[in-house]
């Protein structure tokens, strides 16, 4: 694993709660992610994992608590401004721009790095838009190369098979040049071989591209193998937190996954 740096965490969630009417999606969840680590959130279905990621990416606004990115409070920042800070994400259910080519999908990831507005875009050859496009194309090609999707770069994204689409989505998030990349179930619905590839990409992104990774994943084998630290959510509460082995040995986690009664959860259900 990359050597996690000490000091300010890249992301800190402080006492985050999220309620939809009477439903409590998250209750008082706190954690921090250190720069350079692979941090995983696991938990049974409906535990609030995706809600947590949505709070970080700005899709939901926490009812209570705050979220700090590199020490800056981003709790109320609109989602589209978070890309420029260095936050990228992929979605649990594929969210590609289906009618665009793979290349254009990835180029959309460069949006906040490109400067040419619509007027310079329309003038293309005159205002420098062409030069800018070609410069960014070079870097996008590196990402395409890294994720091994050269053969489909001109294909329409919506027509690709599932595994490839997952990779294109990862490529698009990488194109943002994020410091922290949020991966919501990057391996859902993949076969063993595809999972192995994806695990390798994630590790490379972490070690060679220097990205901090926050990942939600159900495959315990993968989570335990590649994570530096793991947080376990159940019914919107943090029930365990720490290194993979530590978390695996935690009695609360065992109960959550084996479906036994747990005092932490019971308290919540009674409320």
């Amino acid at each position: 694993m990359a050597e996690p740096e000490s000091g300010t965490p890249i992301l800190a969630a402080e006492h985050v709660s999220l309620r939809f009417g009477g439903v409590r999606a998250l209750t008082d969840v706190s954690f921090d992610i250190r720069k350079g680590e692979v941090f995983s959130i696991i938990g049974p279905n409906g535990a609030g994992k995706t809600s947590m990621v949505n709070c970080i990416s700005g899709r939901y606004r926490p009812t209570e608590g705050r979220i700090l990115f590199e020490g800056q409070d981003i709790t109320r920042m609109p989602p589209n401004r978070r890309a420029a800070l260095g936050l990228g994400r992929t979605f649990q259910n594929l969210a590609l721009f289906g009618h665009m080519s793979v290349l254009d999908n990835i180029m959309v990831g460069r949006h906040h790095l490109l400067k040419s507005g619509f007027l310079r875009g329309m003038a293309y050859w005159l205002g420098g838009a062409q030069r800018e496009e070609l410069e960014h194309r070079r870097e996008v090609e590196e990402i395409i190369d890294f994720l091994e999707i050269q053969h489909v770069r001109k294909a329409q994204a919506g027509t690709l098979p599932y595994g490839l689409r997952k990779r294109v989505e990862l490529a698009r998030a990488v194109a943002l040049r994020p410091k922290l990349i949020l991966l919501d179930e990057p391996m859902a619905g993949m076969n063993l071989e595809e999972k192995e590839d994806m695990a390798r990409y994630i590790l490379d992104l972490n070690r060679e591209w220097g990205m901090t990774v926050l990942m939600i994943e159900h495959d315990m084998g993968v989570v335990m193998d590649i994570s530096d630290r793991v947080m376990v959510l159940d019914f919107g509460k943090r029930i365990a937190h720490g290194g993979p082995a530590e978390v695996l040995a935690d009695p609360h986690v065992r109960r959550a996954y084996l479906g036994e009664e747990d005092e932490l959860v019971r308290e919540d259900a009674a409320a």
């Binding site: 700005g58 990228g88 496009e133």
Partner: peptide, 29 residues
């Protein structure tokens, strides 16, 4: 002008808004 627009930043952003506005927003649009 329109053909140029569609192969540059803002044209792609328009199509991204059409195809999937939630992920477009995450891309900084």
């Amino acid at each position: 002008g329109a053909a140029n627009l569609m192969r540059t930043r803002d044209g792609r952003a328009l199509v991204a808004v059409r195809d999937h506005y939630l992920s477009a927003e995450m891309m900084g649009i």
